[in-house]
Simulated scan of single mutants.
Amino acid sequence: MNAGALAIGEKAEAVNKVIHSGLADRDSDDLAARLSELVEQLQKHAAEIPESEDLLAATENVALELAKDQPSKFTVKTLLTGIATGAGPVTSVVEAVQAIQSLL
Rank of each mutant, 00 (worst) to 15 (best):
N2C: 09
N2I: 10
A3N: 12
A3Q: 09
A3D: 12
G4E: 03
I8G: 03
G9L: 03
G9K: 05
G9C: 00
E10S: 11
E10G: 03
E10K: 11
K11F: 08
E13M: 07
E13F: 12
A14L: 07
A14Y: 06
V15F: 10
V15L: 11
N16A: 13
N16R: 07
N16G: 07
V18F: 08
I19A: 04
H20D: 12
H20L: 12
S21Y: 05
S21V: 07
G22K: 14
G22V: 08
G22C: 11
L23V: 12
D27Q: 13
S28C: 14
D29C: 05
D30L: 15
A32Q: 06
A33V: 13
A33F: 14
A33S: 11
A33I: 12
S36L: 11
S36E: 12
S36K: 15
E37A: 14
E37N: 11
E37G: 06
L38P: 03
E40T: 15
Q41N: 01
Q41Y: 01
L42G: 05
Q43N: 12
K44T: 11
H45T: 08
A46T: 02
I49S: 01
P50G: 06
P50W: 00
P50N: 08
P50L: 04
P50A: 13
S52N: 15
D54W: 07
L55P: 03
A57D: 14
A57Q: 15
A57Y: 13
T59W: 10
T59K: 03
N61A: 15
V62G: 00
V62F: 00
V62Q: 00
A63V: 14
A63C: 07
A63D: 06
L64F: 07
A67W: 08
K68W: 09
K68E: 15
K68T: 06
K68H: 04
Q70T: 12
Q70F: 11
S72K: 06
S72V: 05
K73L: 07
F74C: 03
V76W: 01
K77Q: 13
K77E: 14
T78V: 05
L79D: 02
T81R: 11
I83P: 01
I83C: 03
A84F: 03
A84H: 04
T85A: 09
G86A: 03
G86K: 03
G88S: 00
P89V: 12
P89L: 06
V90M: 06
T91K: 05
E95K: 13
A96W: 07
V97M: 01
V97G: 00
I100T: 01
I100V: 10
Q101W: 04
Q101V: 05
S102Y: 01
S102W: 01
S102P: 00
S102K: 06
L103F: 02
L103W: 00
L104D: 00
